[in-house]
Amino acid sequence: SEHYTFDGEEQAIRFMRDMEAKNLKYELQIHNGKYIIQVD
């Protein structure tokens, strides 16, 4: 699995939509205002 970190919500949402379009599962965590997305 890989981790991707985003500072902004818009970037994170765009990335998650992209993952959904590719049928990839992901998990979102928010730490200290950063959006951390783990992709299986």
Rank of each mutant, 00 (worst) to 15 (best):
residue 1 S to T: 13
residue 1 S to E: 08
residue 3 H to V: 15
residue 3 H to Y: 15
residue 4 Y to W: 10
residue 4 Y to R: 04
residue 4 Y to N: 02
residue 4 Y to P: 02
residue 4 Y to A: 03
residue 5 T to S: 10
residue 5 T to N: 04
residue 5 T to R: 06
residue 6 F to W: 02
residue 6 F to M: 02
residue 6 F to K: 00
residue 6 F to V: 02
residue 6 F to I: 03
residue 6 F to H: 00
residue 6 F to E: 01
residue 6 F to T: 01
residue 7 D to F: 09
residue 7 D to Y: 10
residue 7 D to A: 07
residue 7 D to E: 11
residue 7 D to S: 08
residue 7 D to Q: 07
residue 7 D to T: 08
residue 8 G to F: 14
residue 8 G to S: 15
residue 9 E to F: 12
residue 9 E to P: 10
residue 9 E to R: 09
residue 9 E to D: 04
residue 10 E to F: 05
residue 10 E to H: 05
residue 10 E to Y: 06
residue 11 Q to T: 07
residue 11 Q to F: 06
residue 11 Q to E: 15
residue 11 Q to D: 15
residue 12 A to E: 00
residue 12 A to I: 02
residue 12 A to D: 01
residue 12 A to K: 00
residue 12 A to N: 00
residue 12 A to M: 04
residue 13 I to F: 10
residue 14 R to K: 13
residue 14 R to Y: 06
residue 14 R to P: 07
residue 15 F to D: 02
residue 15 F to W: 04
residue 15 F to P: 02
residue 15 F to E: 02
residue 15 F to Q: 02
residue 15 F to Y: 03
residue 15 F to M: 04
residue 16 M to F: 02
residue 16 M to W: 03
residue 17 R to H: 12
residue 17 R to M: 14
residue 17 R to Y: 09
residue 17 R to V: 10
residue 17 R to N: 11
residue 17 R to Q: 13
residue 19 M to K: 01
residue 19 M to A: 09
residue 19 M to E: 03
residue 20 E to D: 13
residue 20 E to K: 05
residue 20 E to H: 05
residue 21 A to W: 08
residue 21 A to Y: 09
residue 22 K to W: 07
residue 22 K to V: 06
residue 24 L to W: 08
residue 24 L to S: 04
residue 25 K to R: 11
residue 25 K to S: 10
residue 26 Y to R: 00
residue 26 Y to K: 00
residue 26 Y to V: 14
residue 27 E to K: 13
residue 27 E to M: 11
residue 27 E to R: 12
residue 27 E to V: 14
residue 28 L to H: 02
residue 28 L to R: 01
residue 28 L to Q: 02
residue 29 Q to L: 13
residue 29 Q to K: 13
residue 29 Q to N: 09
residue 29 Q to W: 13
residue 29 Q to S: 12
residue 29 Q to M: 13
residue 29 Q to E: 09
residue 30 I to E: 05
residue 30 I to L: 07
residue 30 I to S: 03
residue 30 I to T: 05
residue 30 I to V: 11
residue 30 I to R: 05
residue 31 H to E: 11
residue 31 H to W: 10
residue 31 H to V: 15
residue 31 H to I: 15
residue 31 H to Q: 12
residue 32 N to R: 05
residue 32 N to I: 03
residue 32 N to L: 07
residue 32 N to Y: 06
residue 32 N to D: 12
residue 32 N to E: 11
residue 32 N to M: 08
residue 33 G to W: 01
residue 33 G to N: 06
residue 33 G to F: 03
residue 34 K to D: 02
residue 34 K to T: 08
residue 34 K to R: 08
residue 34 K to G: 03
residue 35 Y to T: 01
residue 35 Y to I: 05
residue 35 Y to D: 00
residue 35 Y to E: 00
residue 35 Y to P: 01
residue 35 Y to R: 00
residue 35 Y to Q: 01
residue 36 I to G: 01
residue 36 I to E: 05
residue 36 I to L: 08
residue 36 I to S: 04
residue 36 I to A: 03
residue 37 I to A: 02
residue 37 I to R: 00
residue 37 I to W: 00
residue 37 I to F: 10
residue 37 I to Y: 02
residue 37 I to D: 00
residue 37 I to E: 00
residue 38 Q to M: 14
residue 38 Q to G: 05
residue 39 V to I: 10
residue 39 V to W: 05
residue 40 D to V: 14
residue 40 D to F: 15
residue 40 D to S: 13
residue 40 D to T: 14
residue 40 D to I: 15
